[in-house]
Write a protein that binds this DNA or RNA. Structure first.
Lengths: 209, 209
DNA sequence: GCTTATATGTACGAGGCGTTCATTTACTTC
DNA sequence: GAAGTAAATGAACGCCTCGTACATATAAGC
């Protein structure tokens, strides 16, 4: 009986613990907190208490609340929005936009993402991380699909596909974040059709292209 | 020498003060703080110290940080974005969108507004107030102008003008809030032209309307 | 085994939150 | 002008969060 580890299997004590075990405990706690309480109740102090991981360790690996939240979010939310390729760009856009809206409005992760974007307005580190880990890839996929449609002769080749992304997804974000109008299915359809066929009256002086 | 007011002209003491004087002191302080430090450094405690108004009074009139910030913002920022009516909807949209982008990117108020929208994601009172005091009127003006264009035969009458608003302003907000692509003048022009003339290749199967 | 990296408990000062309370003063009414 | 009411004040409170510091205990790597 020289010295035994003072830690039982469950109870915690002092001393190093396996890194992945610690990390898993933290991310699970952060994910739970985000989905149940939301961003505003996420604090280092609470995460430390609920996860059993010490504040010292938290601050070591996650320098800011944003970093912590983002990590927890991606751990909690299954992100599988791969773009369909039916051959018809209109069909695929509708399908993808509907899936996106579903994710944002019908799953708890949607609110969290909105809160993350919100926090990013006052947390530059979070803004950068969000862009790198989330926006960039999403945008890349959309642009890729739109470019394919151009190559297949379905879209005008002169059109900047980046702008198209903003006019579809950005419009949805607008309603989600400002919340002054509801995001209905009719809205989604109108988004796509307005953009595909244009809104200027045929033969009008406005229609210059 | 019965009793004199213990307050000199500048120095503060206990007791009631003129309501507008108090209100002015607060709004000036909040506006300054927002424009110089930003939303994250705006606290009741600091506003009380800097304005000379007691915390008790602040909490009485402004129930939340969001209410305080919004009030201060509208006091500090001159909001004059009346829609032009040149007779050409394309010209007027470009003009108005450019003015909006200028406001958001070239004036200090732009960042503050983004931060307010951000805060609104975790502060429902602020969300409601922002919608009532800001978004609604902006959207109303845009819809009004677009409806006029419909009546003048420049836009298809079947188009939902609300959706158009999201596809123009929403697209800009998207880039401003996510910051993954810059908001250039070419972007603004592309926004308008994509939407007016459509992006589907003429004669393509996609173009169903 | 020895060394190093890491997690732990504990404590700290600073600061914000949101509220209470008695006191002082401006406004209103008669 | 006097009395009564509404409002602003200072001060203090308990609670929470932040971010950091320190000494100690343990897992990994060599």
């Amino acid at each position: 009986m020289t010295k035994e580890p003072k830690r039982t299997t469950t109870g915690r004590g002092r001393g190093r613990r396996p890194a992945d075990e610690v990390r898993a405990d933290v991310l699970r706690t952060v994910g739970d907190l985000l989905l149940t309480e939301g961003m505003s109740d996420l604090t280092f102090e609470r995460v430390a208490r609920l996860s059993g991981v010490s504040k010292t360790t938290l601050y070591k690996w996650w320098p800011s609340k944003g970093a912590l939240a983002l990590d927890g979010y991606f751990h909690a939310v299954e992100e599988t929005l791969t773009f369909p390729e039916s051959g018809d760009i209109r069909v695929d856009l509708l399908s993808q936009l509907r899936a996106f809206v579903h994710l944002m409005t019908e799953t708890p992760g949607g609110k969290v993402l909105a809160e993350l974007i919100g926090q990013a307005q006052t947390d530059n580190d979070l803004s950068v991380a969000l862009r790198e880990l989330y926006s960039k890839e999403r945008r890349r996929q959309a642009v890729e699909r739109l470019t394919l449609a151009q190559e297949q002769g379905q879209l005008e080749t002169t059109v900047d596909t980046q702008v198209v992304v903003d006019q579809l997804w950005g419009a949805i974000y607008h309603r989600l974040l400002l919340r002054d109008e509801p995001v209905t299915d009719a809205f989604i359809v109108a988004l796509v059709d307005n953009l595909l066929t244009g809104i200027a009256r045929s033969g009008s002086a406005v229609d210059k292209r």
